[in-house]
Design a binder for these strands. Structure first.
Length: 787
DNA sequence: CTAGGGTTAG
């Protein structure tokens, strides 16, 4: 084989390299073995007698094992200190996803030149390891032997996590005199725009003696990112007068502007420009076109662009799915999702976002038909029927589909399957089934996939296994905010506000960029634990440091936090000074706080505002009618309910589930149809007596119907959570823990009752409601009755 | 052997 190698002129390598990777591997490993067996000590160090064009081979290598093999061959051929080749390897390993090999290779280069440094720096940036790349550059800048060049700065400027970092780097750029390099300048413009300092970005742009398309593009997108469309269009105009031609990048920044400003004519003109200049083949351009047409509601146009694409990436699929999903055609959208899986495209978070909405739309229709059946089964007042139920519908639908897949064994589950099925199990709190899937994922090595793993973290978190969620979190790559958000929210719903904050600090230290979801998780974690000052700090940090404008969810968390902690005035001031219009959820949160702290005056004010806002959310009508019911104003309660009915709103029926063995049992309030119904109600009666002897007094304020006292007690006793708990008690061994899941918030009287039940039965009872976890043990709840 | 500016949600 070695002699064969000698004979081959380099150009003859080409056919071999076009073969599959294992062939290259085989080819090189046999030549390697030959070399070792004939010349073990490499005495015959005439490397040049072997013609290996590593340059060419590296470029065609797509497999990490082949790369390692090539690395070994390099050592055997005595090229262990060839700076050029090792530098190439640094880049190759990073491209193939193994950054640790990249950095060890880099560390072993004895005489690193600026190419080596640049390669390492950009390798870190490409894999999102911004902190490491900054450290690497800092080290480089402290050396005297090597000087950074203009290749060094663009990646580093991308890695800056704060304006301060950016300004520091800008100083170095000036010190080295690279500020007029078009690449460096574009990076500077991008950097300043990213941190909201568009004026500075614009100054860099204006000061450039020479500009290329990239410079114009950077400035245009800089203004867009900061919401200044007018200024962006002005730059575009000037670009036209200076006769700089728009390229694919310009176009793909332009199209979202047309979509956003609903400029159909402008959008179509840009499309014509694209066709005229042959820019259609660019995926970014086509994707942007699909999104724009979708926003215009012109589905046929979006479809035509999608059909005409030669290459489709993840964004293309997400875009076409979202196009149909957002234009009220969930069936077609679902069809595209299936086709996407069929062609082997891996779904991501955004796919799942659309998917959730698709299932929501589909189930709502299905549920509509089921409403009538429900009226008969539940003995709720006329108004209090289904819808909202969609999520429950989604869960059972997804689980059914998975079971069918298992039985049929015709479809091989992939990442998409897992990210659909795991949230369904999290949703009903089915830990064991979720764990079974975890087992399968370990076999498939899919559990390290960030999206699948995040679903698992979420599942463990929502099923009450916080330790499992944590240990899984530490096993997976933590480069994006996705897994961090999941773990922070898990900690939050368990009432571990401080730990959630600690995780956020770790996230910052690791250089992972927090997003608006991170802050929602964080603020709600603080709110569950009553950490007022800490939440205020997060709220400030989010705005000052991350430049994230708080949205209604963030404000909602803050209002909730102040309200529950009893700072009703602070809560009210926040609401009245918000730069955005308060919606029903904000007023509802404030109202709930007024209910807890018995502030009737503010409560009345909040409820008036609540009804002014056109609310689709039935929960607030229920809350309001509950407040009336609490004080015995039944006419008021009835009025609110009829108002809700007029608006076509129906109450979500409460249900609780408990897992016994491998079966998930679901109970609705007043359930009479369970096979072990008689046994359950008998046990309830016995328990009730014991509870009363220990001092339990039923709190009728949680009964929302206008009925006699004895009937009120019966209603409380047959709340779904209590049925589920008792079923758990009679169906599992003594003293084993019971896990309950409830789709709504746990009722206050049931919360109190569960404390007694945990003491009497010596059971640990873990209740997860729509808001958080409650761990009951020995007559005490972990939430300290603060929720 | 190493660099910039771009498309998706709520």
């Amino acid at each position: 084989m070695l002699s064969l190698l000698k004979c081959l002129p380099p150009r003859n390598f080409k056919p071999i390299l076009q073969l599959q990777q294992p062939c290259i591997y085989h080819f090189f490993s046999s030549s390697l073995q030959h070399k070792i067996s004939h010349d073990p000590d490499n005495k015959n160090n005439k490397n040049n007698n072997v013609v290996v064009d590593f340059n060419l081979v590296f470029r065609s290598c797509t497999n990490i094992n082949v790369a390692k093999q090539l690395h070994a061959l390099l050592l055997v051929l005595g090229k262990a200190q060839d700076v050029v080749l090792l530098t190439q390897l640094v880049t190759l390993y990073a491209t193939l996803g193994d950054l640790s090999l990249s950095s060890t290779t880099f560390k072993h280069i004895q005489r690193k030149n600026i190419f080596s440094w640049n390669s390492m720096v950009s390798a870190y940036v490409r894999r999102g390891r911004y902190r490491d790349s900054m450290d690497c550059v800092t080290e480089l800048l402290s050396l005297s032997g090597v000087r950074p060049d203009f290749y060094t700065f663009p990646p580093v400027l991308k890695a800056c996590l704060s304006l301060a970092d950016g300004e520091k780097m800008h100083c170095w750029v000036l010190k080295m005199g690279f500020e007029h390099d078009v690449y460096v300048a574009a990076s500077l413009i991008h950097l300043y725009s990213r941190f909201g300092a568009v004026e500075v970005a614009h100054k860099v742009f204006v000061d450039m003696p020479v500009r290329d398309v990239g410079s114009w593009n950077a400035m245009i997108s800089g203004f867009c990112q900061n919401g200044n469309v007018a200024e962006a269009l002005r730059v575009l105009d000037r670009m036209k007068t200076e006769e700089v031609k728009m390229d694919t990048v310009t176009v793909s920044s332009m199209l979202p502007i047309c979509a956003q400003s609903n400029d159909v004519v402008g959008g179509v003109l840009v499309h014509l420009y694209v066709i005229k200049h042959g820019l259609e083949s660019d995926v970014f351009v086509s994707n942007a076109l699909i999104n724009m047409y979708s926003k215009f509601g012109r589905l046929q146009d979006a479809q035509r662009v999608f059909d005409g694409m030669e290459v489709r990436d993840l964004v293309s699929w997400n875009s076409i799915i979202a196009a149909y999903e957002q234009n009220d055609d969930p069936v077609t959208a679902l069809g595209f999702f299936k086709e996407m899986l069929f062609v082997g495209m891996r779904p991501d978070l955004l796919t799942v976002v659309s998917l959730a909405s698709i299932f929501g739309q589909l189930s709502d229709r299905r549920i509509g038909r089921a409403v009538h059946g429900f009226v008969v089964r539940c003995r709720w007042l006329e108004v209090d029927i289904v819808i909202g139920y969609a999520q429950n519908g989604l869960a059972s639908e997804a689980i059914d589909a998975y079971n069918m897949m298992e039985e049929g064994r015709t479809i091989v589950p992939n990442q998409g399957t897992w990210v659909s099925i795991l949230p369904a199990y999290s949703h009903v709190g089915a830990l064991q089934q979720g764990m079974k899937i975890h087992g399968r994922l370990i076999k498939n090595c899919l559990f390290l996939d960030v999206f699948v793993a995040t679903c698992l973290i979420d599942m463990y978190g929502k099923c009450g296994r916080l330790e499992d969620a944590m240990s899984l979190f530490y096993e997976i790559p933590q480069e994006t905010s996705v897994p961090w958000n999941a773990i922070i929210s898990s900690l939050g719903i368990h009432g571990h506000g401080e730990k959630a904050l600690q995780l956020f600090k770790d996230m910052r230290a690791d250089g992972v960029k927090a997003d608006h979801i991170t802050f929602v998780s964080l603020l709600s974690a603080c709110s569950h634990s009553g950490l007022v000052d800490e939440a205020q700090w997060c709220f400030d940090t989010m705005q000052k440091e991350y430049r994230i404008k708080p949205n209604l969810k963030h404000y909602g968390c803050m209002v909730d936090l102040f309200g529950r902690a009893g700072y009703l005035e602070k809560a009210y001031n926040l609401v009245s000074n918000m730069p955005i219009q308060a919606d029903a959820s904000i007023w509802g949160t404030l109202l709930a706080a007024c209910r807890i702290h018995g502030n009737a005056e503010l409560g009345t004010f909040a409820s008036d505002r609540l009804l002014e806002v056109d609310s689709e959310n039935v929960g607030y009508y229920v809350l309001l009618s509950n407040i009336y019911a609490n004080v015995g104003k039944w006419e008021g309660a009835v009025k609110v309910r009829s108002l809700a009915r007029d608006r076509g709103l129906r109450k979500t029926p409460g249900w609780s589930s408990v897992v016994v063995g491998s079966v998930v049992e679901v109970f609705y309030a007043g359930n009479q149809s369970h096979p072990q119904c008689a046994e359950i109600y008998e046990e309830l009666r016995v328990l009730n007596a014991k509870m009363k002897s220990l001092g339990y007094v039923p709190d009728y304020s949680f009964v929302l119907q206008d009925v006699e006292e004895d009937e009120k007690e019966e209603i409380l006793t047959s709340h779904s959570e209590r049925l589920a708990i008792v079923f758990g008690i009679i169906s599992t061994p003594p003293k084993s823990p019971i896990r309950i899941f409830k789709n709504l918030r746990v009722c206050g009287d049931c919360h109190n009752a569960t404390k007694y039940i945990s003491k009497i039965t010596e059971r640990e009872i873990i209740v997860r409601d729509s808001n958080r976890f409650h761990h009951f043990k020995d007559g005490i709840c972990s939430c300290g009755d603060y929720w």
